[in-house]
């Protein structure tokens, strides 16, 4: 059964990729990329990587698609027909692909439990992490504790992207203009005049925010954690901005607040590390945080996941604001 799903998903992925290569209308290409992300997320579930699937669906399908659509709406909607022969590109791509295929020939077969990759470092994570660190979700243990430093780097990457966007695009308050662009929409000028959208948004947004909090705090026991939670929380705010207007959303959660939240999230993460140093351990050594190592680990993971979630939420909304407030701006 699994094999069937595997082959079906891979075939769909290939078709989608080929479609993205070929289609010139950018809106279609971007939506196809979203479908590609979603199919990849399904593929991840099939390969038992549930946390990764969750993140790919939230971040890859969700945020990437929103940002790409925003970018596209501010630029062109069609790609020009390429008029040159792409022979050189095909040659380069074929050579690279051939080298990769050559390289995989000495790899163990897909799914082989005797592969060397599973025997060295991973054994300790699987056997010991529930005893040493605590959470049943081994991915959270590794992400937040064993390799917590990579996660600090990753949070810094998100902060960098947000700050880069603000530095490059600026952030300006706009007069209220409808987010819906086409004026031939009949009787509706604003999205918020559309009754169905408004009522459903008001039902959904609190549920979305609640779900985000659930994902944040339940990340120890199931798939989830700071990244996914931050993105889902941000998507609630973005939905509000889409329906009720950017101006209204900026009144609820304005840019200054978000900027402070983003910085504080990273400072919280770093601060936990520094606190560990001050209490006698190494940087990010949570055992030092409490009298009992397991309690210390639990506290440490809780705090840093909070830091990550706050920064991710703030930066995602900042990125949306940066692009959305650019519409109607003349160079």
């Amino acid at each position: 059964m699994e094999v069937f799903i595997d082959i079906a998903l891979l075939t769909l992925l290939c078709i989608t990729a080929m479609a993205v290569v070929h289609i010139r209308k950018l809106f279609c290409a971007i939506m196809l990329l979203g479908i590609f992300s979603l199919l990849s997320a399904s593929m991840f579930v099939n390969m038992d990587a549930v946390d990764v699937a969750f993140t790919e669906a939230a971040v890859g399908t969700g945020i990437s698609t929103i940002l790409l659509l925003l970018g596209m709406s501010l630029t062109n909607t069609r790609e020009k027909r390429p008029h040159y022969q792409p022979l050189f590109s095909l040659v380069v791509v074929s050579i690279t692909g051939a080298v990769l295929v050559y390289g995989t020939m000495d790899l163990p077969a897909y799914g082989d439990p005797n592969a060397s990759i599973h025997h060295h470092v991973a054994q300790r994570y699987i056997k010991q992490s529930p005893l040493e660190v605590g959470p049943p979700n081994m991915v959270t243990s590794v992400l937040a504790s064993y390799r917590g430093y990579d996660t600090l780097g990753e949070t810094a990457v998100i902060l960098t992207a947000g700050m880069a966007l603000v530095a490059l695009l600026g952030m300006r308050r706009r007069k209220v203009l409808p987010m819906s662009s086409s004026s031939g929409c009949g009787d509706y000028h604003d999205m918020k005049d559309h009754l169905v959208l408004r009522i459903m948004a008001k039902i959904f947004i609190p549920l979305i925010l609640l779900f985000a909090l659930y994902v944040q705090f339940h990340g120890d026991y199931g798939p989830g954690g700071g990244f996914q939670a931050g993105v889902i929380f941000a998507s609630g705010i973005i939905l509000y901005a889409l329906i009720f207007g950017l101006e209204a959303a900026m009144k609820v959660v304005g840019y200054p607040v978000l900027r402070v939240l983003a910085a504080c999230g990273l400072l919280l993460y770093g601060g936990v590390g520094v606190a560990c140093m001050a209490l006698g351990g190494n940087f990010l050594d949570y055992n030092a945080l409490a009298h009992d190592p397991l309690h210390g680990q639990h506290l440490g993971i809780f705090l840093i996941e909070l830091g990550v979630g706050v920064t991710v939420f703030a930066i995602m909304v900042i990125m949306f604001y940066a692009f959305a407030s650019r519409r109607g701006h003349t160079a």
Partner: peptide, 23 residues
């Protein structure tokens, strides 16, 4: 002994502080 980590963490957290105070 904490010097190697301080080397990287100081600029990193300093960047967050730069964002906090925009002057």
């Amino acid at each position: 002994i904490h010097l190697p980590v301080a080397l990287v963490v100081i600029p990193l957290l300093g960047a967050a502080v730069c964002v906090l105070f925009r002057r």
